[in-house]
């Protein structure tokens, strides 16, 4: 069973490693996406990651702080928690449709990085909120009470005591949500992704190419599926590498910071 999962990884690494080269990462796609590189797709994915994190991270963390530090156990709190888990359970394609009807059509952003980032941000908001909440819950109440007893206000306690202790786990959640953003195809399908656009975005109202959608396009509906197969292996490998590196960084950050906190 583990074998199946490993064989997937191994197969894609084996087929993709030969495709990846410096040119593959830094050149525009050429000849109907059968030659050249995936540079615009990588840049597009980075733009989307940045945009969605700028939106989702502050709101998610503030939301979790409010839920965990300010509300008492009660209807309001459980209602917000229920809605957060509801949001987490919504299929990603529905986020795509919602993003299209609200951001692209109603608010008139068009197919743009802005619309795509907001959609992806909403998608990962529940992940950020939940991991931050868990991180805050794990902070020992003695710390809070000690800080309050020394005359610090609630805000000072959160700022100086609770957040620094919870930071490693919050960062882990952040990195995990970046991994999720970089791999999602359905939400960007209707909101930002361009089928073929060999230039870099100049503003947040531009369309971009993105890695997952690029892979989807060249493996199912490219101009010449057989010729672009090698490109598909390479794209898949780059995508997996980004996600794996982010996940490994997450666990490394968590280990490093929690060790540091223990010494203090």
């Amino acid at each position: 069973m583990i074998g199946i999962l490993f064989s997937i990884l191994g197969f894609i690494i084996y087929k993709g490693i030969g495709v990846i080269s410096w040119e593959f990462i830094t050149e525009m796609p050429k000849d109907g996406m059968t030659k050249g590189g995936i540079y615009p797709a990588i840049i597009g994915t980075l733009c989307l990651i940045g945009g969605s994190i700028i939106f989702a991270f502050p709101i998610g963390v503030m939301s979790a702080i409010y839920i965990n530090e300010y509300t008492k156990h009660g209807y309001f709190r459980s209602f917000i928690q229920l809605m957060t888990s509801n949001l987490a359970g919504i299929p990603s394609i529905v986020f795509g449709l919602f993003g299209m009807s609200l951001f692209v059509n109603q608010l008139g952003f068009g197919d743009s990085i802005l619309a795509g980032s907001l959609t992806l941000g909403l998608l990962v908001l529940p992940i950020v909120i939940r991991t931050t909440e868990e991180a805050l819950k794990a902070v020992d109440d003695n710390f809070r009470q000690a800080s309050l007893a020394l005359g610090a206000t609630k805000l000072q306690t959160i700022q100086r005591v609770t957040l620094p202790i919870a930071l490693p786990n919050i960062l882990t959640g952040l990195i995990l949500s970046i991994g999720r953003v970089s791999g999602e195809t359905a939400p960007i399908l209707f909101t930002v992704a361009a089928y073929f656009l060999p230039k870099l975005p100049t503003s947040i109202f531009d369309q971009v190419m993105a890695l997952p959608y690029h892979l989807y396009v060249i493996s199912t509906s490219g101009t010449n599926i057989n010729d672009s197969r090698a490109m598909a292996y390479g794209t898949a490998l780059v995508l997996i590498l980004i996600v794996l590196i982010l996940n490994l960084t997450a666990s490394a950050v968590r280990r490093y910071l929690s060790k540091k906190n223990n010494i203090n």
Partner: peptide, 9 residues
């Protein structure tokens, strides 16, 4: 954590 599009591919 592997993206679904990779599984689909």
């Amino acid at each position: 954590g592997i993206p679904s599009v990779v599984y689909g591919f």
